[in-house]
Amino acid sequence: MSEATVREITYLEAVREALIQEMRRDPNVFLLGEDIGVYGGAFGVTRGMLEEFGPERVRDTPISEAAIAGAATGAALMGMRPVMEIMFMDFITIAMNQLVNQAAKIRFMFGGKASIPMVIRAPAGSGTGAAAQHCQSLEAWFVHVPGIKVVAPAVPYDAKGLLVTAIRDNNPVLFMEHKLLYRTKGPVPEELYSIPLGQAAVRREGHDVTILAYSVMVPRALEAADQLSQEGIEAEVVDLRTLKPLDQATIVASVSKTGRVLIVHEAPRTGGLGGELTAVVAESEAFDYLDAPIRRLAGRDIPIPYNRTLERAAVPQVEDIVAAARELAREGR
């Protein structure tokens, strides 16, 4: 890939570029969701796309999340490649039956004779002051459902490359976009490229402690790692990128190397993905290399509060990661 075509664009623009380029490439790809046409989407992701692709392929829907998910599922069953937008991930609750009982099950329960190639784009996460019903991170529910894949990019490069792969995947893929990441910038090639699902990325190498993170916790973990480095603690930051399928090999290799693991996510601690990641480490050969207990730093077990200070206190911040990693690095020495 020639350097000249790599520009700094935002995560939001990267998502849009993946959609546009895939729609130009494959006439089966189309978008549906609430206010994605003239309005351009609640966060502006699909802005300008109606003009290029028209109302049939950038399809505004009524406020009917179950029917949106059903329309995507049925169209996918027919071989189309719908990309449905759930305006806020919280609203996916209304679509759960279609996603969990239909989209995820059809292939298996029909004996492998059908497939459901669809993408569910879901802006998730807190930090915008939108309170309890517009800020959730519900990935653990979907990771728990056989038949659905879950992707949670942290950087613009991945947002584009992973979305392209998600659209081409022959299964339902939940694509979590963090609202706070939409305005972050990073290098993204103009050309179409894809990143395989199920591959984590080591964002920063280190030998003292492994930080497992995804989505918005990746830039926070990297910032924390810079601070820790000044104290002489070198953290290795692993960006999971895909939550299902999970790149267990990269996790196990990193933890085996550092002997310490801090798992960081925004979603509430209890029943969160951190428990699964803990088990992955504990059941692997990395367990023998652990110098300290596995540690989780997750969102508190509360609905996301409105007030700025309370909201900030609800989920891990950079200073929380620094403190937890510092403590962990000193344990068992």
């Binding site: 179950a66 029917a67 998910a69 059903g70 329309a71 995507a72 599922t73 049925g74 169209a75 996918a76 069953l77 027919m78 071989g79 189309m80 719908p82 039956n97 279609q98 009982n101 239909q102």
Partner: peptide, 12 residues
């Protein structure tokens, strides 16, 4: 549950 799915089939 097949009713919303039907919408998608007919849409295709």
């Amino acid at each position: 549950s097949g009713i919303p799915t039907a919408v998608g089939i007919a849409l295709a």
